[in-house]
Design a protein around this nucleic acid. Structure first.
Length: 454
RNA sequence: GUGGGUAUAGCUCAGUUGGUUAGAGCACCGGAUUGUGGUUCCGGGGGUCGAGGGUUCAAAUCCCUUUACCCACCCCA
């Protein structure tokens, strides 16, 4: 029979068991961090009606979304976790308590060309705080501290949380007379770090149709940091001329001030007037977190404030603030930096039982008794050679193997072998179970270094 | 959607100006060692050279087409 060649689609990721364990550890640590801030877990469907997901319409989303029909239904895969959240709060708002704080870790889908750090299927970890009618700016300052805690908990130190405020930019554009072209100007300004000031100047003039002196005014403000100027001071000089600008500046100052109180050290955040985007529903504060040692991978966590998340689904006004962490990207950064290593590796079982007689009964009873005590146990029931069985334990890094052979069973005993030290002990099942129970918690947190063979 | 690159064993890759039966390392299986793994040694299985067509006495190698993947742009986590 002709075989179909097994393959995984481009941009989709599959991990081998060892790395999957590490990925799950990473997700678990993030959940731990999020719950410290009082967020509740949420899960929503991967598939939604296309009408719901495309409510906003137009733009990149429409081009990149996976969309398909099943019977008469027009369906789509979610391309982020924020739109489904909007639907969720619009639908269940009556039953939720606001401000609603939820976290969600799940896969999202984008039908774009895959490349380094860009996947078609990837995990996002989102946290959002949704208010009913209003939401205090304090929440916008708290979000970066959650990023800070989450990343440092994972062991990361080399990252910067950049903060900006869209109202500041919008106001600035109005002030310089390019308000009509705000979207294009923002898009181009956002490229500053990547392509440099000269190309940006060129693009502003050629693509956005901005006058040379208008471009100069904007660039003067936006790149002030590179010249060693203090952004807040620079912006303050423009105060009182545009309402949107003033509001944005006030918010930016407040966020910066409270962020410090929330414990984000100066070294890990900066005002960056060039970050503008993320998805386009943001209306005020925006965040973008990049890894100092992996600029090529792009933003690993971004988000911001949106004034009316659910406007396409309800008349109820539900402002919010949130961020999205690109877990799949984060995982590669963590692996590359050696943050996920054997110290975090956990074997799938604590004990492997090898029944060596035809009667599996005693092995099954022992497994049941050990599981009752909280030990993670596998029975190796296959009729393979002894060395193959031990090799199985070795490959899976299972730390203890129990032998149940004629010799032991006839005396009512069992033998346990410590796969790390090679030591073997023969004793009653009860004694061994108790001894393992005491030693396992330490083992489970990581596989100890194997002693060299003599 | 646009541009560039790559495609040889399960994986990572060699393969000379086209020239006998296409190789290595890792992985896998067996043996040395029938109740003792991770080391070592010996042996073994596994390939329509991505697919289709062409040039040639002869193609993994040269040409054309096509597909997939990778990288970059757009955009983004």
């Amino acid at each position: 029979m002709e075989k179909i060649s097994p393959r995984t689609l481009s941009g989709f990721m599959e991990l081998l068991p060892g790395r999957q364990v590490l990925f799950d550890k990473m997700a678990e640590m993030l959940r731990g961090s999020f719950s410290l801030y009082g967020f509740t877990p949420l899960d929503t469907p991967l598939v939604e009606s296309a009408e719901v997901l495309l409510a906003k319409g137009g733009g990149e989303t429409e081009k990149q979304i996976y969309r398909f029909n099943k019977g008469d239904s027009d369906l789509a895969l979610r391309f982020d976790l924020t739109v489904p959240l909007a639907k969720y709060v619009a639908l269940h708002g009556g039953a939720l308590t606001f401000p609603f704080r939820r976290y969600q870790i799940g896969k999202v889908y984008r039908g774009e060309r895959a490349q380094r750090g860009r996947f078609r299927e990837f995990y996002q970890a989102d946290i959002d705080i949704i208010g009913d009618g209003s939401l205090d700016i304090m929440n916008e300052a708290e979000i970066p501290s959650i990023i800070y805690r989450s990343f440092t908990t994972l062991g990361l130190t080399k990252f910067v949380i950049r903060v900006n405020n869209r109202k500041v930019l919008t106001g600035l554009f109005e002030l310089t007379g390019v308000g009509q072209k705000a979207a294009d100007v923002m898009r181009i300004i956002d490229k500053l770090e990547k392509i440099g000031i000269n190309k940006v100047r060129e693009m502003l003039e050629n693509e956005a149709g901005v006058d040379a002196d208008q471009a100069e005014q904007i660039l003067d403000i936006v790149t002030c940091q590179e010249r060693g100027e203090e952004p807040i001071e620079k912006l303050s000089s423009l105060k009182g001329k545009n309402e949107t600008f003033d509001t944005g500046l006030f918010e930016l100052e407040a966020v910066i001030k409270h962020m410090a109180e929330f414990g984000v050290p100066n070294s890990h955040f900066q005002i960056d007037l060039t970050i503008a985007r993320g998805l386009d529903y943001y209306t005020g504060t925006v965040y973008e977190t990049t890894m100092t040692e992996h600029p090529e991978i792009g933003s690993i966590c971004s988000g911001g404030r949106y004034d009316n998340l659910a406007e396409y689904y309800t008349n109820r006004k539900l402002p919010g603030v949130g961020i999205s962490i690109g877990l799949t990207r984060l995982f590669f950064v963590l692996e590359d930096g050696g943050y996920l290593n054997d110290a975090l590796m956990t074997a799938p079982a604590d004990v492997l039982i090898l029944p060596m007689t035809d009667d599996m009964g005693p092995a099954v009873s022992l497994a049941t008794a050990m599981r009752q005590e909280g030990l993670r146990v596998q029975i190796y029931a296959e009729n393979k050679k002894f060395k193959a069985r031990l090799s199985y334990a070795d490959k899976l890094k299972i730390p203890y193997v129990v032998f149940m052979g004629e010799d032991e069973l006839s005396k009512g005993l069992i033998t346990v072998k410590n796969m790390v030290s090679g030591e073997q002990t023969t004793a009653s099942a009860a004694m061994i179970t108790t001894a393992l129970k005491d030693s396992i918690p330490g083992i489970r947190s990581g596989v100890p270094i194997r002693e060299p063979k003599k």
